[in-house]
């Protein structure tokens, strides 16, 4: 039986962000090659309302990239490859038996992933007060730097890092260069199409995310779709599974996405959503929080007793 990728196994059954590092390839560990080590960074699942956002890194010697990866394998921007091709390529990078007995065909590449869970994404973005928010960009940058740092701590001497980014490349590149002064950085949009080592990272991240999302299904026949808000299958799942009080399972859905906020606030599916009000809802309100929570003056005994005034 073919086992799941190790990057997936690390992230199953937890609400929280997990990181996996593969074994360091022998050629790098033993310093056999004089060729410099290059590293690619890419992510999968930044936009979806469901499932984790996965950051992947892959690294190899420049020589291995130029003499093995580019001529022999069809790595490319993961979005340009079919699901089967992606999974097939990634499967050549880990032991499919899961017990150390399987052959690893692409043995010159090391990789690592961090899967940021919907719980961590949402709770970071929805911290209070708003000044404490941990936005998606910061989460992404921190995870990337931690992945690189982890590899440095394992003793890998990295020469050049290529990063695919959706945000402004210049400021991000400067941030990375400041944190890692001994490493060269190239931060570019569409880097997954330009640099093979980034394409590998892109495939690792994409396959990992897709399989984690598959594993989150409550049953085999459940249709989640791609997880993007624009996917009709995903919106159909959100409509079908929305509950009045808690809305959706926190392990699967990113509540901080505008799609979710709108579905909850406007009760678009007419399921009778229970209104829940948070402090930030009153920040720009004419009624301040104190007024909202002050006990009404009328002494109506039939009124439901609540604990609103516990500390007032």
């Amino acid at each position: 039986m073919v086992s799941l990728p190790p990057t997936v196994l690390t992230s199953l059954g937890t609400l929280h962000t997990k990181t996996y590092y593969s074994e360091i390839p022998e050629v790098i560990k033993n310093g056999v090659s004089s060729s410099p080590v290059i590293l690619g960074v890419d992510e999968a699942g930044r936009g979806p309302v469901m499932g984790p956002m996965v950051y992947g890194i892959s690294y190899c010697t420049k020589e291995y990239q130029d003499t093995v990866l580019i001529p022999k394998y069809a790595f490319d921007d993961s979005k340009k490859l079919t699901d089967n091709i992606r999974r097939n390529l990634f499967s050549k990078m880990y032991d499919q038996n899961g017990d150390g007995t399987g052959e690893i065909e692409i043995d010159g590449v090391g990789y690592a992933t961090t899967a940021i869970t919907p719980v961590d994404i949402s709770s970071g973005m929805l911290r209070y007060p708003p000044s404490q928010n941990y936005n998606l960009n910061e989460q992404a940058h921190d995870v990337t730097m931690n992945l690189i740092q982890g590899l440095v701590e394992k003793g890998v001497t990295i020469d050049h890092v290529y990063v695919d980014t959706v945000g402004p490349p210049v400021s991000y590149q400067k941030k990375l260069e400041t944190r890692f002064p001994n490493i060269k950085f190239t931060v570019a949009k569409k880097a997954d199409s330009l640099y093979c080592v980034v394409s590998v990272a892109s495939v690792v991240a994409k396959v990992t995310r897709d399989i984690i999302l598959e594993q989150m299904k409550s049953n085999e026949n459940e249709i989640l779709g791609s997880g993007y808000p624009s996917d009709p299958k995903t919106t159909a799942w959100l409509a079908k599974n929305q509950k009045q009080l808690f809305a959706w399972p926190q392990s699967l859905v990113r509540f901080s996405w505008q799609t979710c906020q709108t579905l909850i606030k406007e009760d678009k599916h007419k399921i009778g959503m229970v209104p829940i009000e948070w402090e930030e809802d009153y920040i720009n309100s004419k009624k301040n929080m104190s007024k909202q929570w002050t006990k009404p003056k009328t002494d109506n005994k039939k009124k439901v007793i609540t604990l609103d005034n516990w500390f007032l």
Binding site: K243, Q244, V274, P275, I276, E277, W278, D308
Partner: peptide, 11 residues
Amino acid sequence: CKIRYNGPSDE
């Protein structure tokens, strides 16, 4: 937070 509901829930 203020939950505008009083009553049972199986959620």
